Amino acid sequence: MDELWKWGWAIVLAINVLLAWVVWTLRAGFVPRAEFARLDTRVALIEQEVKHLPTQSDIAAVRDVLAQVKAQGEAQQQTMTGISNSVRRIEDYMMRATA
């Protein structure tokens, strides 16, 4: 017990030095209040700027509409090809009939 009293101050000093070192290394991981307030303000401003931009669901809706438009265009192309073939056959018939 006397040895503990004799070296107790050294143990306490070592623990305090270790604790001070831990706190000193952890302080870099924390943000000061002033910087946090500034970052909070910046985040709020960015949120206001981004609020009007389209969301993921908006983009998905546009993608669906474009897919429908593409399908309609392809259907019209097929219809026009069929009409073109019919007109060509009629023209061929008319050219042969007059010759």
Rank of each mutant, 00 (worst) to 15 (best):
R63S: 14
A44S: 02
V62E: 14
I59G: 12
V69H: 13
W5C: 13
A61Y: 10
G29T: 04
L39E: 10
T81V: 15
M95H: 12
A10G: 02
V43N: 00
L53D: 04
M80N: 14
Y93R: 10
A60E: 05
G29Q: 01
L26Y: 01
I15R: 04
A37E: 06
R38T: 03
A14K: 06
Q68I: 11
A60M: 03
K6D: 04
R27E: 01
G82P: 02
A71D: 05
V31G: 03
A20T: 09
R96N: 00
L39Q: 10
V23F: 06
A34I: 09
Q77S: 14
W9V: 15
L18A: 15
R88V: 09
T81F: 09
D92S: 08
D40G: 14
V65F: 12
D2P: 09
R38K: 08
L26K: 03
Q68H: 11
T55F: 08
K70W: 11
L26N: 04
V87Y: 04
L45S: 01
A10W: 07
W9C: 14
F36S: 10
W24L: 12
N85K: 09
E35N: 07
L53Y: 02
Y93C: 06
F30L: 07
I90S: 02
V22D: 03
V62L: 12
W5I: 11
A60C: 00
R88L: 09
M1D: 13
W7R: 14
K6H: 00
K51S: 06
N16I: 12
R89C: 01
Q72I: 00
N85T: 10
A10K: 11
A61L: 04
G73K: 01
R38P: 02
R42A: 01
G82Q: 08
V23I: 12
K51G: 00
Q76M: 13
P32L: 06
L39V: 00
V87Q: 09
R27D: 10
N16H: 14
E74R: 11
S57I: 14
A34D: 11
K51V: 02
R89L: 00
Y93M: 14
A10Y: 13
L13F: 07
M80F: 10
M1S: 12
V50K: 05
G29R: 00
T98N: 10
A44W: 01
A97H: 03
T98M: 12
W7P: 11
M80H: 13
A44D: 01
M1F: 11
V23P: 03
I83H: 02
Q76D: 10
T81L: 08
A37C: 06
T25Q: 13
D64M: 11
I83L: 15
M95G: 08
L39A: 07
Q78I: 11
T55W: 06
N85I: 05
M1L: 04
V43E: 09
P32Q: 05
V12G: 10
I90G: 01
R63L: 05
V69G: 12
W7E: 15
V65G: 08
F30V: 02
W21Y: 13
V17T: 09
D64C: 03
R96Y: 00
V12N: 05
E91P: 08
A67L: 05
R96C: 05
K51A: 08
Q68E: 13
F36L: 15
W5E: 15
N85Y: 05
R96K: 00
A37W: 04
W9Q: 15
